[in-house]
Design a protein around this nucleic acid. Sequence first.
DNA 1: CTTCTGACA
DNA 2: TGTCAGGA
Length: 119
Amino acid sequence: MRIGELSRRTKVSERALRYYEQQGLLTAERTAGGHRCFGEAAVARVGCIQELFAAGLCSGKIAQVLPCMPGHGGHGTAPQELVDGLRGELDRLDREIRGLYRSREVLDTVIREVTRARP
DNA sequence: CTTCTGACA
DNA sequence: TGTCAGGA
């Protein structure tokens, strides 16, 4: 399929898809006219990329992780270096979650205080 | 009409 | 990333 269809099916802009290819996150063949041609697997691939970006990974990390994912044609044997990096991301997320939880408590407390006289 | 590359009020 | 240009 061409970029337009992949974009519609994944809800990811064509601009972003071209960027992903540039970053080596996505591979595409080319038609005689130079247009990108993606395989059916690209749909799931893009979905995976979206989830990894949402998890806060940079394109570089994602590019290293994808080829290791068994569900995406990967070998399932990520180098220790990469695994360590991912554990670091996990710690980052944990800190982020704790920070957000504290912020939630602050707002919860403020709401109680500003409504103290209006139960 | 769709896609491509390069560039940035 | 959006968006515009200029061409295929």
